[in-house]
């Protein structure tokens, strides 16, 4: 039975220096799990994520990471991820080594990782400078036509962390809606931790939906609201107002540090995190 508390799951499966992918493309982003990693003061992580947005802004600003593999990093529709920017531009709170891709390249790298292939391939990176700054982007001649095709090395994180709608009592996980590259990231990883909105007796998953069977899941934790301020389709919507407000909170080092201190270090779990926000007048 892989069902655990989030604290136990992170303690057991996320270690200093690990390559960690918290995936979720705008939808189902495992924020509560990221906060628990901050709380447990993990260091020197190599964070992997196609879209390092608010969550990696928080984790990088809190000093958890010194490597970042990504393909787009910002606050979607709002602007910069200020903490990621400051880490890259000013090495604050510490230097951040970046390994940059396009979305298509990174998706191919997850597919290769999940398939245990030596590289992923795509017709991509045409005419761009990305291959100049990222030596991992190379090419191979097609054995049938001779065409040069771009290649990327596989991504095989030590641990992938996801948020999903449901798990059953055995630990089988079901997700639906925008599912990004989560299944690939899950199956590419050595360990898989999933937080869910609820644990049900039976999944009753529609055939062909995205189900991660319990035997590939290292731990499941029930964390309702664990994707906030992203969303969980069927449970709650994306908190666009908070994402807009984050721009101001994250712009200033001290204001950011105070936010992390009050809501992440100052709380013991996600429930207390939500209570602290509510106590300060954030409508949730």
């Amino acid at each position: 039975m892989p069902v655990a508390t989030l604290r136990e799951a992170i303690e057991e499966h996320v270690h200093d220096g690990d390559m960690v992918a918290l995936e979720g493309f705008t939808h189902l982003i495992p924020f509560a799990a990221g906060h628990e990693i901050i709380r447990q003061r993990r260091r020197h992580l190599h964070l992997v994520r196609m879209t390092p947005d608010l969550l990696y802004d928080q984790m990088i600003g809190a000093g958890c990471a010194d490597h970042l593999t990504f393909s787009w990093g910002g606050n979607p529709g709002v602007g910069s991820a200020h903490r990621v920017r400051e880490a890259i531009e000013k090495s604050w709170p510490q230097p951040l080594q970046v390994h940059e891709h396009s979305h298509a390249g990174m998706a191919a790298a997850y597919v290769a990782g999940a398939s245990r292939l030596p590289f992923g391939l795509l017709r991509g990176y045409f005419g761009t400078d990305l291959a100049t700054v990222n030596p991992d982007i190379r090419s191979v001649a097609c054995p049938y036509t001779g065409e040069q095709i771009a290649t990327v090395p596989p991504l095989n994180p030590d641990v992938t962390i996801l948020h999903a709608q449901k798990a059953d009592l055995e630990g089988n996980v079901l997700m639906s809606g925008i599912v990004g590259a989560q299944k690939e990231a899950a199956l590419a990883a050595k360990r898989l931790v999933v937080t869910v909105e609820e644990i049900v007796e039976r999944l009753d998953a529609p055939m062909n939906s995205v189900v991660l069977p319990a035997w590939v899941v290292s731990a499941v934790a029930c964390v309702p609201g664990g994707a906030w301020p992203s969303y969980a389709r069927g449970y709650y919507a994306r908190d666009n107002a908070f994402c807009i407000a984050w721009d101001e909170i994250s712009r200033d080092r001290e204001r950011f540090a105070a936010w992390i201190e009050r809501y992440v270090y100052g709380t013991r779990n996600h429930r207390e995190f939500v209570q602290a926000l509510r106590a300060d007048g954030v409508s949730l």
């Binding site: 705008t26 979305h103 998706a107 191919a108 795509l122 809606g177 925008i178 995205v210 994402c243």
Partner: peptide, 25 residues
């Protein structure tokens, strides 16, 4: 209009929703 590229509004009103490796490939 969606604020992000993956707002729920986009999924709820779509003909279909496919995984990322699929949309690009």
């Amino acid at each position: 209009l969606p604020l992000s590229i993956g707002d729920g509004e986009l999924a709820d009103t779509a003909t279909c929703v496919v995984p990322l490796p699929e949309i690009f490939a």
